[in-house]
Nucleic acid binder design. Structure first.
Length: 866
RNA sequence: GCCCCUGUGGUGAAAUGGUAGACGCGGCGGAUUCAAAAUCCGCUUCCGAAAGGAGUGCUGGUUCAAGUCCGGCCAGGGGCACCA
């Protein structure tokens, strides 16, 4: 009698039993025996309080990998924790008067419950939240080690200021000129901030990222672009002449930097003979010095600043400049004097904030030169062009070629000329080879409460004093108030007032906290072990990391840098220096959007599908279907995982988010798809339910039994391979084909029972990574030993995987005209003869000479005719 | 502007250079049912009655054979961007 599988009861039951058995606890290294280790990690969640479908997809993927590895005999570490610091907790405090810690821990409790419902094979014994004082205390100790080593420093600089979140942001957190969280237009402010010296690792981070062969190419490229290494030269241009006003400065006593050589960075020293001017950034020190004495220059700086730094403004901004009156000597010709300008297209933050303009070889320089009537001398001859007819009008030639009009560089290729020019500069002492990075140091202090306090004390007499190790952790005060803008730690009446640890005089705690990206930069190491270096060495690096691509230049770059810094202070010893050996970036979950007749966004629960289209339930009005977009609160196109789980079960949710699209691509959540997944669950259960109770016979040796066994054994191999290669949708397709075959075999009667039972026993184990609860129920139904979640991956028989006959397509001139089934090892000439005798081919071969026949054993026969 | 990725049925998508469209969704037809739901079976790239022909964004090439490799274009997405 056919029964239905009831997910709600079964799922809870199995989760309780797994928990009681401690099934997913990682084995300590000493107990692991010969089993290889596998550290499988998904980017840990921010405890917003509510799980969304994107989480389900992310963690389901990690769980497939973890469960598969476990079945393959690995000692698996698959932990879970909480990225718990951050602004939403403070916003909750401001809006609702809830203490951020209370709010956060309550969210963690409810999300933990939701996670547990998904049946993930997690080792919860290692759970922690980054806001636990014990965790951030360890982080403070790490900070102090970095400080001592010079990897962390404090400096005044121009920083990105988010006026909505009231805090500083790192360059990586400014997207298109806006704050990554608030979306507010970011302002530039001069502030003293804490920096992590990520640039100390720029070379290594770039070189090593190319070797991460189990990372997506896309992420590697993004990191390489972000680091932005360029090879070139620094050139010092001697001052020949300064304006009169400036010449007086030194006479008043102070040093006169206006007479120091001007440092310029270039990647094209081969075009030095095409130089026609120098251009300094508007906020270059020399520009500022001159501005103090020259109203025209001051006005120019004001104008350049006014245009702003937003992307749009920069795109449209005209090239502006002002002659500073300074003149410099060309390094290769002391008689050659060039003017020094300030130009708004020169960035103070890149290179030395100064360039030499070589208009024939650079479009911006050319535009600038044309506008202000500066000379344009071509020095690179494109391949095939001749010196007589090559002319630069209003398009610069930036490509490679042969150097001319360039003294000793004449006749060299651009590459050779770069080398020769640098060599000559070095001989003259006028320049040197130099590598410049786009990457800036990570400004990681934040003017917020809910973060890790920076463990230093400012003393008027002693300066910046580290908090003594014995006083760590520096805990956040629990009685902070959030009723006014600004940093609550700074407003707190007593927290910051402490005696200086060195001299004992009244001093002041640092009230900035660390960027929450610091918390996530080393948490994987904490999962590996709280403090035991040997245990960390055993588990690390993370073998498979899974998360969103939005962290390509944020978390994933910071973590790599932190791993290096931790190595340099003796905290971590990774063989390759890399924390994440394998990375997979999953796509998002999207959904249709819906708009009511009067333009309100509607949630999927507010609409109904009728024969005449979609209508809004509340009003009966027609609903307009909008584009398919990432699920978001604002578009209201979200689906509540709780509802899915309580209606269909966690297995259905897990199955659906993995089944429809390749994991790296976005998947569209559809009601029809979920129902399809639910149907598959019942269909699969029916396969097991249709088997006889009690022991089943051994598989038969008749042709049909063997054919069915072949399907099963091949499917196991295919699924194994697909999971290993992160092709979960393909694994699922194979499972579908397999269950279809098993279903069909039910009609064949008792002869196939043995083969069906064997297939079912294998299927239960292959289903486990995807639908663990259903698999467990099925496993119990056929009397499987223990938990299927603890069972080994099914063994397969080579003789059943490899066929002894093969079906070959037979082509004539590359077009398929028929097929033959022959013994796998039939000699090529016999295959050819058999193929040529196919009746379907007669019409295509008639009256035409066979030029040759290609026989690819096991693949194809192609007969080539005239 | 530079760099990268992706273009395959109504739809999500498969396809170590070797039978294009597996598998799923949807649709159509049928069985079961008093009826429906559920379930099961069949069909479902296009043109054509069929034989057959065409077909993986466009275009050219390499090859016995191209969705797959190479060149040029077009479209969509992403990254970087007055970066010297």
């Amino acid at each position: 009698m056919a029964t239905r599988y009831e997910p709600q009861a079964a799922e809870q039951k199995w989760r309780d039993e797994w928990d009681a058995a401690g099934l997913f606890k990682a084995k300590p290294p000493a107990e692991a025996g010969d089993a290889p280790k596998a550290f499988v990690l998904e980017m840990f969640p921010y405890p917003s309080g509510k799980l969304h479908v994107g989480h389900v997809r992310n963690y389901a993927m990690g769980d497939v990998v973890a469960r598969h590895r476990r079945a393959k005999g690995y000692n698996v570490l698959h932990p879970m924790g909480w990225d718990a610091f951050g602004l939403p907790a403070e916003n909750a405090a401001m809006e609702r008067g809830i203490n951020p810690a209370t709010w956060t821990y309550a969210n963690i409790a409810s999300m933990r419950g939701q996670f547990k419902q998904l049946g993930l094979s997690l080792d919860w014994s290692r759970e922690f939240a980054t806001c636990d004082p014990e965790y951030y205390g360890t982080q403070q100790a790490l900070f102090l080690k970095f400080l001592e080593k010079g990897l962390v420093y404090r400096k005044a600089s121009k920083v990105n200021w988010d006026p909505v979140d009231n805090t500083v942001l790192a360059n990586e957190q400014v997207i298109d000129g806006r704050g990554w969280r608030s979306g507010a237009l970011v302002e530039q402010r001069d502030l003293t901030q804490w920096f992590f010296k990520i640039t100390a690792y720029a070379d290594d981070l770039l070189d090593a990222v190319q070797k991460l062969d189990r990372w997506p190419e896309k992420v590697r490229t993004m990191q390489a672009n972000w680091i932005g290494r360029s090879q070139g030269a620094t050139i010092w241009w001697e001052i020949a002449e300064v304006p009169e006003a400036l010449a007086r400065i030194g006479k008043d006593g102070g040093p006169n930097h206006a007479t120091d050589p001007i440092e310029v960075y270039t990647t094209r020293p081969d075009t030095l003979y095409g130089a026609s001017f120098l251009a300094l950034a508007p906020d270059h020190p020399l520009t500022r010095t001159i501005a103090a004495h020259d109203p025209d220059v001051a006005a120019f700086i004001a104008e350049a600043t006014r245009i702003g730094t937003s992307e749009e403004a920069i795109e449209k901004a005209p090239k502006l400049g002002v002659d500073l009156g300074v003149r410099v000597r060309h390094p290769f010709d002391p008689d050659w004097v060039l003017p020094v300008w300030s130009a708004n297209f020169v960035l103070s933050t890149y290179g030395s904030g100064a360039i030499f303009g070589s208009p024939a070889g650079d479009q911006r320089d050319l535009d600038f030169a044309r506008k202000y009537g500066l000379p344009v001398k071509p020095v690179v001859l494109p391949p095939g062009a001749s010196a007589d007819d090559h002319e630069i009008v209003d398009e610069a030639y930036t490509g490679a070629g042969t150097i001319y009009n360039s003294g000793f560089l004449d006749g060299l290729t651009t590459d050779a000329a770069i080398t020769a020019a640098i060599e000559h500069l070095e001989q003259l002492g006028a320049g040197e080879s130099k590598t410049v990075f786009r990457l800036r140091d990570w400004g990681f202090s934040r003017q917020r409460y809910w973060g890790c306090p920076i463990p230093v004390i400012h003393c008027e007499a002693c300066g910046v004093v580290p908090v003594p190790a014995g006083d760590l952790p520096v805990r956040l005060p629990e009685d902070a108030t959030f009723d006014k803008p600004g940093n609550p730690l700074d407003h707190h009446p007593s927290w910051k007032h402490v005696p200086c640890p060195t001299c004992g005089k009244p001093a002041r705690r640092e009230t900035d906290t660390l960027d929450t990206f610091v918390d996530s930069s080393w948490y994987y190491a904490r999962f590996a072990s709280v403090s035991d270096p040997a245990e960390r060495a055993y588990w690390l690096p993370v073998d498979q990391y899974v998360g969103g691509v939005e962290h390509a230049v944020l978390h994933l770059l910071y973590s790599r840098a932190f791993a290096r810094a931790m190595r340099d202070v003796g905290e971590l010893d990774l063989p390759s220096g890399e924390p994440f050996a394998g990375l997979f970036t999953q796509g998002m979950v999207t959904h249709e959007t819906y708009k009511s007749a009067d333009g309100r966004w509607l949630s999927p629960t507010e609409i109904e599908r009728r024969s005449n289209g979609l209508i809004e339930i509340a009003t009966g009005e027609h609903v307009e279907v909008g584009p398919i977009e990432k699920m978001s609160k604002s578009k209201r196109n979200t689906v509540d995982p709780d509802v899915i789980v309580s209606t269909y079960g966690a297995d259905v949710a897990r199955w659906f988010v993995l089944s429809d699209s390749p994991p790296e691509r976005d998947v569209e959540w559809t009601q029809a798809g979920v129902e399809g997944a639910a149907r598959f669950v019942q269909r699969t259960w029916s396969l097991f339910d249709a088997l006889p109770e009690g022991p089943c016979p051994a598989p038969g040796t008749d042709a049909d039994s063997i054919a069915l066994r072949r399907v099963s054994h091949k499917a196991v191999r295919a699924i194994d391979k697909a999971i290993t290669e992160f092709r979960f949708n393909s694994a699922i397709a194979t499972i579908h084909e397999w269950t279809n075959a098993l279903k069909k075999a039910e009609a064949a009667g008792a002869d196939l029972t043995g083969a069906r039972a064997e297939g079912a026993a294998m299927l239960a184990r292959c289903l486990t990574p995807f639908m663990p609860h259903l698999a467990e129920t099925c496993w119990a139904r056929i009397g499987g030993a223990g938990f299927v979640s603890g069972a080994a991956w099914p063994a397969t028989d080579d003789s059943l995987v490899e066929d002894d006959t093969v079906t070959l397509a037979v082509q004539v001139n590359g077009k398929r005209r028929g097929e033959i089934t022959v013994a796998r090892d039939m000699p090529a000439d016999e295959v050819e003869a058999a193929a040529r005798n196919l009746p379907e081919l007669a019409v295509h071969l008639e009256g035409r000479a066979v030029k040759k026949a290609i026989v690819v054993p096991g693949r194809i026969v192609n007969i080539v005719v005239a």
